[in-house]
Design a protein around this nucleic acid. Sequence first.
RNA 1: UCCGGCAUAGCUCAGUCGGUAGAGCAAGCGGCUGUUAACCGCUGGGUCGGGGGUUCGAGUCCCUCUGCCGGAGCCA
Length: 430
Amino acid sequence: MTKAVVEKIAQFEGQEVLLQGWLAAKRSSGKIHFLQVRDGTGTIQCVMVKANSDEEEFAAADRCPQESSIEVKGTVRKDARSPIGFEIEATSFKIVAEAEPYPISPKDHGTAFLMEHRHLWLRSRRQHAILRIRATIVRAIRDYFDNNGFLLVDAPILTPAACEGTTTLFELDYFGEKAYLTQSGQLYNEATAAAFGKTYCFGPTFRAEKSKTRRHLMEFWMVEPEMAYADLEENMRVAEDFLVYVVGRVLEERQVELATLERDLAPLEAVKGPFPRVHYKDAVAKLQELGSDIVDGEDFGADDETVLTKLYDRPIIVHHYPTAAKAFYMKPDPDEPKYCFSMDVLAPEGYGEVIGGGQREECKEVLEAAIEAHKLPKEAFEWYLDLRRYGSVPHSGFGLGVERTVAWICGLPHIRETIPFPRMLEKITP
RNA sequence: UCCGGCAUAGCUCAGUCGGUAGAGCAAGCGGCUGUUAACCGCUGGGUCGGGGGUUCGAGUCCCUCUGCCGGAGCCA
């Protein structure tokens, strides 16, 4: 018998099919059962009428617990009353494995409880919508770079030293030596960009920061493109073009899921170029005007970022952050070295930083001085300095945090639902 | 690391002034041939987070510990 999938149920109209899945919910009027069957691709109502059913199977369906795995055979019928337009007129019902009492009932649960049952929570409609959108975002990211001359060259996850030396790293034992989980593929990308021109890496990233907010994970996915012969201006242009493309793909392919999440589409439809470019100095002046106590030379506080983004209807690019507040490899602006060729893309609606990047310092002597000023061990960066010794060029790149992007596009209040199994401060299970 | 908040049935919560523990949902049983968070009736379900204290009496007041949630700093 033909196996049907809910996602493509229209193709099976009028056919007798086998549906393999799980019992998501049921209602009954005694002589007629309405079984909501989830097969992973969607949920469809299977209607089982007593008069047309095997007596034992009809009784089995009646007492079948939620989330039992089941196989239903029946005919696919068009029905206007169905939210998906189709239902299955069941002729046979079989329990594959009866479930124990299921902890996640159809309503009323707090996030703490749901997070403890994350492995089961993933079965819910809302989580399906979010993770499908995440999958589309990831595919759009890859398509963008693959189609625009970038080569995927992944950076290592186990690294010998701090890439930037400032933030906390997860340390581990590497056959008697200390090693760390990567917090950025950036430095390696500079090597691959010098080898291949335009490259990107895409993988998990780890930060052992004691951050306990709705915007932080200990383990998150980041895509980092790097371009040889590109300055800050080019970098901002690519970041903008890239983000417009990703949001556009989600709007094109995930209308159903966005509707499930009740996402207001207007702010997403407004994601069109050009994004406003705001010099750090102007941003500070504007914030001070609005009552912030920010001082020129400091990085933005969380409030500042929110206040600033709410002034615009689309993402904005803040550039020329203070050199002192940024990583050692950022190239200072020769006209005003207090500020550097760095840039962040801040998402609207209070979501804030989704992209951070900039133009890298290409001069060996300046870079050596920066490494020294940041009190970093020079030996560890000899290979990195080689990139300046052998054919150094102006180059730029950026990193986009996948989970923050998913949270923003989905309109979620918290980053924890954007990844199947979030790793959060002091919370690593399930 | 710092600052707030919360902890009562499987889940979400109520519990007045300190006076013998409640609801809805879920579960179990019964009813119902078109339900959409179905509905109607019945039943079972509690170490009120742990420990200590005040009191004739503590879910309620005090101390302490634990767990969780939110935020700050830091960052994507």
